[in-house]
Amino acid sequence: MRDVVGLALIFGGLFFVLVSALGLVRFPDFYTRSHALGKSDTLGTILVLGGLAVYGGLTLSSLKLLLILIFVGLGNPTATHALTRAALRSRHEIWSRREGGKKE
């Protein structure tokens, strides 16, 4: 039972890691790509780590996995924010459909 739940979480997480990788390729500019790291990758990592913690059962290692999980959940959005802010403050322009811009 625990194995099944753990595996389901791991494969769910794998899907979102996949989506974030695809997003990094397909999105047209830096700001849109940062959505891939700030959201999809965060959730993907949280799900995979959570799944492994469920699979491992209640051990010290699983508690450490939960710590990593919390850390990634707080750290990834913060890092994304720091990067986008640096880009904005050095006047990096956003991609906009209205400008008819093409992919960078």
Binding site: A21, L24, T45, L49, V72, N76, A79, T84, E104
Partner: peptide, 24 residues
Amino acid sequence: GPTIYDRVLGVGLMGTNAILLLVL
């Protein structure tokens, strides 16, 4: 790239993938 920000973003994504790989 094309900008330095994209590169750093790539490094960040690689880092989280590395965490997952280590645990796996």
